[in-house]
């Protein structure tokens, strides 16, 4: 359980090599000495590095295997995380940006994006929902994106997967409320990270540490949605309502 002053004792990172997930874990580790972290990701050198990074931050890390495109793999990872005691915060952080032009012209590429960014997270959400109902408490941090709020020509396949993801986790929050669950949907703008390496930062770009700080603040305040940076919220609100001919011509 997250204690009265906002300290969890254990975290589950689904997509444990994501820069944002790691930044969230580090931020919590600063609050909770000896924080237990289950790091679910594909076995790889990157996962090893991520483990070392969290150990250096004082965490006790347990790596478990996760294959984003396999539904069973999510259930197994959640079960493994719950073995050592309650899971206080779970972060659903994995995702692919993909190449938009390929993604809407090549079936395999488009379907992969849909599976990794939407189908997998649905499996994760179902497993986490079962865990929260059993525990009577639990926070799920779901990393969505402003891209899902209004799909753009330049990244609409990714945007469409995030739109589905966002709707699923928003609804999951409603469903878990009466069971003591708290789901936070996080909508960052452009985050400078491994995922966006080589891309030109969009306006209002942010970094993983800022996203992590916003996540902790929102969890503390029991908010259900947070935009990062905060100014993204009014910006997106305007963008959502622009007539399509105008929106189309925007240089974004």
């Amino acid at each position: 359980m997250i204690d009265a002053t906002g300290r969890p004792r254990s975290l589950l990172l689904l997509g444990g090599t994501s820069d944002i997930a790691l930044a969230v874990a580090e931020a919590y580790a600063a609050r909770t000495p000896g924080l237990r972290v289950t790091l679910a990701a594909r076995p790889s050198a990157r996962r090893d590095q991520a483990s070392h990074r969290l150990e250096a931050a004082g965490c006790t890390v347990r790596p478990v295997d996760l294959e984003a495109r396999s539904a069973e793999s999510h259930e197994a990872a959640v079960r493994a995380a719950a073995e050592g005691g309650d899971v206080d915060v779970a972060v659903v952080a994995y995702g692919l940006l993909g190449d938009n032009e390929r993604s809407w012209t090549d079936v395999a590429a488009g379907v992969e994006l849909a599976e990794v960014n939407y189908v997998g997270p649905v499996a994760a959400g179902i497993a986490l929902g079962a865990l929260v109902r059993q525990q009577g408490h639990g926070v799920v941090v779901a990393l969505s994106s402003v891209a899902g709020e209004r799909p753009r020509r330049s990244n609409f396949v990714y945007g469409s997967t995030k739109a589905g993801f966002d709707a699923f986790y928003t609804g999951l929050g409603e469903a878990l409320r009466e069971h003591g669950g708290h789901v936070l949907v996080v909508r960052p703008g452009f985050v400078r990270s491994k995922m966006t390496e080589g891309l030109d930062p969009a306006p209002l770009a942010t970094d993983p540490q800022s996203v992590a700080a916003a996540v902790l603040g929102a969890v503390d305040a029991r908010k259900e949605q947070v935009w990062v940076p905060g100014t993204m919220r009014p910006v997106m609100s305007v963008l959502r309502h622009l007539p399509r001919p105008v929106f189309r011509r925007l240089p974004i």
Partner: peptide, 12 residues
């Protein structure tokens, strides 16, 4: 939903 008198850390 239960908390203590301090109304922190609600659980079900």
């Amino acid at each position: 939903r239960l908390t203590g008198w301090g109304r922190t850390a609600p659980v079900v």
